[in-house]
């Protein structure tokens, strides 16, 4: 990492300051929410990654996770396609390079820390929060364990402690939020020996990525994964192979998760407001009809009685 500690601390302060000044959010229809200004991001340059698993080891250490089934020096695990688990918040997977066979590519998977996180949007007890540093953090003290966040996450990141009877938690990468607010780098970034991971302001990371595209156009696919996917994420990726070849989904779209449900949620007040009106109207009509039917019936009965009476009285008159 080429960023000095002092500069880094300065950023942390600036992120806090600019948030307090912040643009005033409004609910106006065409308002665009750009996220926290000056929040951080991590750029993963997969062309530099050698699959050494140092990041996995560091992640395990800084998060106090249980020891892995096989040591981090065992690189044979890269052969199988792994996902995040309660014991591993990040995993590196190896993929064949469709452009250059014999030169595998490596991709480090962990929570992407969406700018508008699907997990936070889906959580009915607000256990997830996007912080001003960029990290999406989870609060186990309120979590009910419904696992809707896991359903909602398009990257299939959150994991659940299924074996815990009383205190099951969701487990996932914190982007080392506790370290970052203390001025330290995320564990994985600090540990990477190849500088395949860069940490800094999201805007700067995007600039760096573009700069690399410009300098080495043959080396990269001209796309920053995470710049716009699902509305943008705080982890950004550049690659030499198509992202699909790295097991990354290219069909997620650029709509942030909250937008997907906003329409349905906005129908709630309409139903509450209009349904009683409609139903009361139907009730009034049916009641009126019933009343008419009743009067009709009464009249019919009355006239029948009249007729009856007159028929009865007639012979009397005659007699």
């Amino acid at each position: 990492m080429s960023i000095s500690r002092r500069k880094f601390l300065g950023w942390v302060g600036a992120a806090g300051l600019s948030t307090t000044i912040g643009k005033s959010a409004s609910a106006a229809t065409n308002k665009h929410f750009a996220g926290y200004p000056d929040s951080f991001a991590i750029l993963h340059d997969t062309t530099l990654c050698v699959g050494c698993r140092s990041c996995e080891a560091a992640c395990n250490k800084v998060n106090d996770l249980p020891p892995p089934d096989r040591p981090f020096t065992d690189l044979s695990v890269l052969e199988t396609r792994r996902r995040t688990t309660t014991k591993a918040f990040t995993v590196v997977n190896k993929y064949d390079n469709p452009k250059k066979s014999g030169h595998p590519v490596f991709y480090k998977k962990q929570c992407n820390h969406c700018l508008e996180p699907a997990c936070a949007s889906a959580c009915f007890v607000r256990a997830f929060k996007k912080t001003k540093t960029g990290a999406v953090v989870y609060d186990p003290s309120v979590c009910v364990g419904c696992r809707y966040c896991m359903i909602a996450c398009p990257f299939e990141i959150p994991t659940y402690e299924y074996d815990q009877a009383l205190t099951p938690r969701i487990r996932k990468c914190t982007m080392c939020h506790p370290r970052v607010i203390e001025g330290q780098l995320p564990g994985c970034v600090e540990a990477c020996p190849m500088e395949a991971l860069s940490f800094g302001k999201r805007e700067d990371m995007i600039k760096i990525a573009r700069e690399r595209f410009r300098k080495y156009p043959d080396r990269y696919v001209n796309h920053i994964y995470g710049e716009n996917e699902m509305g943008g994420t705080s982890w950004l990726y550049v690659s030499g192979a198509p992202f699909k070849a790295l097991g990354m989904r290219e069909d997620l779209g650029i709509k942030p998760a909250p937008e997907l449900t906003a329409g349905a949620l906005s129908s709630v007040p309409i139903i509450v407001g209009l349904w009683p009106v409609l139903l009361a109207g139907i009730y009034a009509v049916s009641k009126r009809k019933e009343k008419f039917a009743q009067t009709d019936q009464e009249e019919a009965v009355a006239s029948a009685l009249d007729k009856d009476r007159s028929e009865q009285s007639q012979p009397e008159e005659e007699s």
């Binding site: 959580c123 009915f124 007890v125 607000r126 256990a127 009910v144 349905a264 949620l265 709630v268």
Partner: peptide, 15 residues
């Protein structure tokens, strides 16, 4: 909790 501690009003599940 979703009712009395912290309301996740953006969640469809909350509704």
């Amino acid at each position: 909790y979703p009712l009395v501690v912290q309301q996740g009003t953006t969640s469809v599940l909350f509704e």
